[in-house]
Design a binder for these strands. Structure first.
Lengths: 179, 179
DNA sequence: TATTATAGTTCCATTATGGAACTTAATTAT
DNA sequence: ATAATTAAGTTCCATAATGGAACTATAATA
């Protein structure tokens, strides 16, 4: 499968990956999150080549994660800022950071900490259930085929790839229902 | 900067990205999470070429996210399974999934839902503070330079890139302290 | 008038990736 | 007994993505 076709997969991770499944895009988003908004700041701080950065920023603008904001009319200079869609990546960045903090950190300790302004403490954000509020982990989550898969299944338009992936989730559900 | 040098950055996202900042690695991890453990299943379900998959799996094994498990002695066949380090990526996959569900979904709806077995409901996992338990979002989180940055700063061994990135976080903190 | 800063673009060499064919070893079908 | 099949790769080659360095444009500054 060509990379351009990855976002045709019936999978939100595949669709997300089609936007930042490359070497730099997520790091660019991180820089903007951390306050680096100008082309040259992002470029120097990442050590990315200029034309690659141009390319990636344009892609982020196309995908509506980033927009250009004129900050100097005389110079015609722009800042790159995150849209709502871009800002909405913060849980991804936080969970990724935590994984990196735990598994890839050097002996000096974690580079950045997050302070929860309401309670004033350094927070180690956890996932919790939107319904009952209890903490979630692998052991108390099960998968269920959602409407997006079921609809395609009924219409008989699932690709072989999607069938391989979701077949067993639907099988597991069917089994669980019988018991 | 060459890609091989990205993991030298003092940033957990950079270090994490150095492992799966490519086109396929995170999708491979997702397949294993969803239950596809055999080489050929992963290969066919993703449409990735065999030598690329070989390459990425070996990298994941090197980085200790995946290990091989002999499931057929006669054939000498292996399954690929996630280690603790690999399993620990589930919050990343969940937050990524949610972002994709919200922003990149087609009209059929979300492909997969997560059921919280304790309360029995479909959960939309949220980040909450490990200290007070309240939900976290961008508006109530602030950044703080952690020990990893402070130590390097004191020793004077921060790269120019890292200084550009963390300089303003430390400045912002210094300002906040004065007030 | 020469130099610097910001934000790019162009050209070319190096790497990464995709596609197809080939390999090996055990299994099943004819 | 022979041929075809399956799983898990490997090898070869063409195409696509990336990195490095040099070049452009415009306004400001020395």
């Amino acid at each position: 499968m060509r990379w351009e076709d990855v976002n045709t997969q019936t999978c939100s991770i595949a669709k997300a990956t089609s936007v930042f499944g490359d070497r730099w895009t997520l790091l660019i988003v991180r820089q903007i999150f951390l306050g680096l908004r100008r082309f040259s700041d992002i470029q120097k701080s990442l050590g990315i080549t200029k034309h690659r950065l141009t390319d990636r920023l344009n892609r982020l603008i196309e995908e509506d994660l980033v927009f250009k904001h004129l900050y100097d009319e005389k110079y015609n200079r722009f800042e790159y800022r995150l849209t709502e869609k871009g800002l909405d990546l913060y849980p991804v960045l936080i969970t990724l950071t935590q994984w990196g903090d735990k598994w890839m950190c050097d002996s000096d300790g974690v580079p950045v900490e997050y302070v929860h302004t309401e309670c004033g403490e350094v927070a180690h954000p956890r996932l919790s259930c939107s319904c009952c509020g209890k903490p979630l982990d692998l052991s108390n989550l099960t998968l269920k085929a959602g409407p997006g898969v079921l609809a395609k299944c009924c219409r008989g338009v699932m690709s072989d790839e999607d069938q391989m992936l979701y077949g067993r989730i639907m099988d597991a559900e069917a089994k669980a229902d019988k018991q």
